[in-house]
Amino acid sequence: MKDSRRSFLKIAGVSALGLTAASNAHAIGEYFIPSEKAIKDQKVSTADRWGMVIDTRKLNHETNKKMMEACHVTHNVPTLPEKYKKQEIKWVWEEEYSNAFTEIHNEFQSEEAEHAPILTLCNQCENPPCVQACPTKATFKRADGIVLMDFHRCIGCRFCMAACPYGSRSFNFQDPRNGLEDGKPTNPQFPTRTKGVVEKCNFCAERLAVGKIPACVEVSEGALVFGDLSDENSEIRKVLKENYTIRRKASLGTGPSVFYIV
């Protein structure tokens, strides 16, 4: 009697598990969109490795602010109340030279150079530690070199934030709409994010897809040059050849795609 009850419970348990799994199976598989049905926009800008050169000689607080604003308005980046300053969201922001270039910190520099306002953003690394750390591939590197976030997939573990050596990542500690006027996005064409996911600069992937250049570059008045690093004849390669540039923490081997003329 005892044995048969036990085996009945076992069988019942296993069948229940099986039924649940079977009824959920369809929900797990992705709905397949065949490749001939999904294509790129004809106006798309393509590259093998997108990159940026920032001419720090042309940076000042005002132009920096303009570029930051252009980015944040385009991407619905919220401005949280002062109380949550430590949890703010930044895609592109300003750091003093000594903070941006912690490894290239020289003695006897002029006060001006030491505190020069450097524009910092995601370096779109060739070898991104955040992608390696992400347990769900919510952060991934595209064929064109852009390190992108899939907000649908992010579980908010913040491993990528620990992995990023540049502090380029922000976490939505609350609903970002709390920091947007009336909870409305500044750019309705672009989504806001939900609370609990990580975000960062996307090199304006959504603008490149329709043939536009990144929003910050557009308003940079020549301080930023954007282009394909793998194309020898591109303007960005020309600028790199003609100027001495440095990269942030290049010694870590992450291969930043953002270069700085100093």
């Binding site: 797990i28 390696q132 750390a133 992400c134 347990p135 769900t136 591939k137 919510a138 997939r153 992010c154 579980i155 908010g156 573990c157 913040r158 491993f159 976490f171 939505n172 939900t194 609370k195 609990g196 996911v197 990580v198």
Partner: peptide, 18 residues
């Protein structure tokens, strides 16, 4: 987790380099 309901993504999108 910021999105605890998505925790199973770790299994659905198994990522051995993480």
């Amino acid at each position: 987790l910021g999105q605890p309901t998505r925790a199973m993504n770790v299994i659905f999108n198994a990522t051995p380099h993480s």
